[in-house]
Design a protein around this nucleic acid. Structure first.
Lengths: 197, 197
DNA sequence: ATTGATAAAACGAACGTTCGTTTTATATAT
DNA sequence: ATATATAAAACGAACGTTCGTTTTATCAAT
C-alpha cells in the first residue's frame, strides 16, 4: 500500500517554509535571500521545498496573504465597536502597536516589490482597497451618527487615516526608540484629531 | 604630453551613471537590476562605469544623497516663510506634489534597503533626523507665535506630520488616480488639522 | 514491492567584477 | 603646422561565484 498523503502535515510544512522565508527576507531582502538559505532556515533540502512551492516567486507571493488576515481581524473589531470614532482610532493604534520591527521591514519589502511586480501589485492593491473600503464604511457610519466630522467626505478622511497609519508603521524603522507604544499613541492621537468634529 | 584630467566631465559622467541606475532600480529593484543593464542604460561599458564607481553598492548608496538635497531645498523654503503653520502645511503639500511615481518607487526601495544595509541605514537615518529636526524647529516657532496648537509638544507633532507626509508619498503607488495633486491637497489638509490650535 | 518524501548532487544561466587592450584627446618638440 | 608622446577614458571578453532549479539516489512506510 502506498504511503498516504497527510494534508495536515502539508499545511504545516507550507507554513513553516513561509515563516522561514520571512525570516530570511527580513534579514536579506527578497532578492538577496537565496533559496539555499531559505531551505536551511526551514531545515529542509531544496527538493523538499520544491515539493511545496513551485519556485521562489510563489514563496514571495505567499508573503502578501498574511496582510489580508490582519485586515480581516481589524474589520471584525471595527464592525463590533459601536462608536465609529473609537473603532478607527483604536484600530489604528492597535495596528501600529502590534507591528514588530520585523513586520515593518517585511512590509517595506512588500511595498517596494509591489511597485514593480505585477502579480504582487495585484494582491497588494486588493488588500489596500479592502482596507480603505473598511475605513470609508466606518467613517461614513460615524459621520451619520455625528461622532466624526462632516467637514470632509469619507473617502478623503479614509485616505488621511490610511496615510497616518502607514506613515507611522514606516517610522518604526528610523526611530531608535523601539518602544512602539509611543508611536501607537501618536498614531491614535493624530487619527483622532483628523476625525473628530 | 599627457591629456589633462577633466573634473567637469567626471562630475557629469557620475551623475549620468546615477540617473541611469535610478531608472534601472525603479524598473527592477536594487538587487534585480544588473550592472550590465545599468551600463547599457548609461551608454557605457562595464569598465568605464567601474572607473567612476568602485562597485554596485556604491551606486546604490549614491541614491540616498538625492534625498538630502530635497530636504535642503525644503529647509530653505520653510525658514523663509514667516508663518510657521503655512510653512509646514505648504511644505508638506509641495513635497507630495513634486513626488513622481518613479520617485516614490525609488523611495520605497530606499526604505526597504535601509532596513537591512548598515551603510544605507546610517545615511537614511541622518536625512530622516534632519527632516524631523527641521519640522520640530518650525513647529516650535509656530507654537511660540500662536499659529500652531500647544496641546501637544513639538516632537510629537513633528512625528505626526512626518508620518502623514511619508504616508501620502506611500499612497502614490496604490492609488490608481495618478494625479498627485489630489493627494497633495489631502496631505496639506491633514497636516493643517493636526497643527491648528 | 511499491509509493511518496526527502536528501544530495549536479545543471546551465546569470551575476558582479577584473583586466589587458584600444581609442581619444592634448601638450610639447620640431 | 605637424608629428609625437602620453595619460585619460572606454571597451569588452573572460573570470570565479552564486543563483534558482532539476535530476538522481536513498529512505521510510504501507
Amino acid at each position: 500500500m502506498p504511503r498516504t498523503k497527510d494534508d495536515k502535515l502539508e499545511k504545516r510544512r507550507r507554513f513553516e517554509i513561509l515563516e522561514a522565508a520571512a525570516r530570511c527576507f527580513v534579514r536579506d531582502g527578497f532578492h538577496q535571500a537565496s533559496m539555499r538559505a531559505i531551505c536551511a532556515e526551514a531545515g529542509l533540502s531544496a527538493g523538499a521545498v520544491y515539493n511545496y512551492f513551485p519556485g521562489k516567486d510563489a514563496i514571495i507571493e505567499g508573503m502578501v496573504d498574511w496582510e489580508r488576515e490582519e485586515i480581516d481581524e481589524l474589520a471584525a473589531y471595527m464592525r463590533d465597536e459601536k462608536n465609529a470614532l473609537t473603532a478607527v482610532v483604536e484600530g489604528a493604534r492597535a495596528m501600529v502597536a502590534e507591528t514588530s520591527a520585523e513586520d515593518a521591514q517585511l512590509y517595506a519589502e512588500l511595498i517596494a516589490e509591489a511597485g514593480r511586480n505585477d502579480a504582487m501589485r495585484a494582491r497588494f492593491v486588493e488588500a489596500d482597497t479592502l482596507m480603505v473600503s473598511l475605513l470609508e464604511e466606518t467613517i461614513a457610519r460615524g459621520q451619520k451618527s455625528g461622532t466624526i466630522t462632516r467637514r470632509q467626505k469619507a473617502p478623503g478622511l479614509a485616505r488621511m487615516v490610511m496615510a497616518i497609519y502607514e506613515g507611522f508603521v514606516g517610522r518604526i524603522g528610523p526611530e531608535k526608540d523601539n518602544r512602539s507604544k509611543k508611536l501607537a499613541d501618536l498614531t491614535a492621537e493624530a487619527v483622532r484629531r483628523i476625525l473628530q468634529p
